[in-house]
């Protein structure tokens, strides 16, 4: 009789928690700190139960004081502790811009290599759903501009766990951008420990006619669009960049050399963005391979609107990705 073991399927938020718990068990220098992470079990229940396992010395509730607790954590990291700092939303990281950009990113350099900053800042990035402009920040383009930080954006629970473990083990500051809209999504996550390396993109769908490059939440729309376009005879390859710094441009270039068409889907604003950077690099490296210029899908160049219909129209979606691919492949 054939024995089948059922694959373990867990939520994105549980995968994040598993990554943190495993690393905290492996290394007592690792601790978690942030607003509502301990007694409240996390604003999004990512840290549920962690206070119980690790105690209040290692799972630490902070006041709403991002500048203070970010700077404090960086000071602790300078001594070799390995803090995980949860931002309830990356939107709130803006009040901590000085410590995270001036101190975390530059400490190693400014001290001539004497003091590093092994720290992870993590939390929700991007529109959560009708939160209006101040609470809907996509910080990736803003922060990717700064040398000295690494940046990861997981799309599914498997990568959430593997990338977060890599982030916590990294000796450099890592900005880890999650999406509220993905926290309840599920996929297979093995019981055994594993990591997902930084700088290695993942081909989420193979195709011959057009390369779609994206990160995090918008990949959902890219994959939906690829299925829809397949019905029209357009065969898309969807690449999940996984990390923005380091950026696996080699895999992207390789794909574009095969498909000769490229669409970049980036949920941040278009001007001076991750999307424009990737497009620029693809243009430089695939100049003779491209049948058309790189097309880009971004959020519209306005503050995030509250009204449901406006917000939906503002964000990248399946329809916009389809249109961009049709244009890039002269099928419009």
């Amino acid at each position: 009789m054939k024995v089948t073991t059922k694959e373990r399927v867990i939520e994105f938020r549980d995968a994040l928690r598993e990554a943190m718990c495993e690393e905290m068990r492996n290394d007592e220098r690792v601790f978690l700190l942030g607003e509502e992470v301990a007694q409240y079990n996390g604003a999004y229940k990512v840290s549920k139960g962690m206070l119980e396992e690790f105690g209040a010395r290692r799972v630490i509730d902070t006041p709403i004081s991002e500048s203070g607790f970010s700077g404090m954590s960086i000071g602790a990291a300078m001594r070799g502790l390995r803090p995980i700092v949860e931002f309830m939303s990356w939107s709130f990281s803006l009040v901590a811009a000085d410590p995270i950009l001036n101190n975390a990113a530059k400490m190693l350099y400014m001290s001539g290599g004497q003091f590093g900053c092994p720290i992870v800042f993590r939390g929700n990035d991007g529109a959560g759903g009708q939160l209006a402009s101040t609470h809907s920040w996509c910080v990736e383009s803003l922060y990717a501009n700064v040398p000295g930080i690494k940046m990861a954006i997981p799309y599914d629970a498997y990568d959430a766990k593997g990338l977060l473990k890599t982030a916590i083990q990294d000796d450099n500051p890592v900005f880890f951008l999650e999406s509220e809209r993905l926290l309840s999504t599920k996929c297979h996550v093995p019981t055994e420990e594993y990591t997902v390396p930084f700088g290695k993109a993942l081909v989420r769908r193979s195709g011959e006619d057009c390369t779609i490059i994206s990160f995090g939440r918008p990949l959902h729309f890219c994959l939906e669009a690829a299925e829809e376009l397949a019905k029209e005879g357009i065969d898309c390859e969807v690449i999940d960049g996984r990390t923005i710094r380091p950026l696996d441009i080699d895999s992207m270039v390789e794909s574009v050399k095969k498909t000769n068409a490229c669409v970049v889907v980036d949920q941040s604003w278009s001007f001076a963005s991750v999307g424009s950077e990737i497009a620029s690099q693809i243009h430089a490296q695939c100049f003779d391979d491209l049948d058309n210029h790189v097309h880009r899908v971004h959020s519209d160049d306005v503050p995030t609107p509250y009204a449901y219909n406006l917000e939906q129209a503002y964000l990248p979606n399946t329809r916009k990705v389809c249109e961009a691919v049709r244009q890039a492949t002269y099928n419009s």
């Binding site: 007592e28 601790f31 010395r57 290692r58 500048s67 203070g68 607790f69 970010s70 700077g71 404090m72 954590s73 960086i74 000071g75 602790a76 990291a77 300078m78 001594r79 070799g80 502790l81 000085d98 410590p99 001036n102 101190n103």
Partner: peptide
Amino acid sequence: IVSAQTPLGTGLAFATKYEDEV
């Protein structure tokens, strides 16, 4: 940056206490 070192100082004290106690 004026006063940027004050949260860092708090963090250094956090670290020594964590090292010594935890």
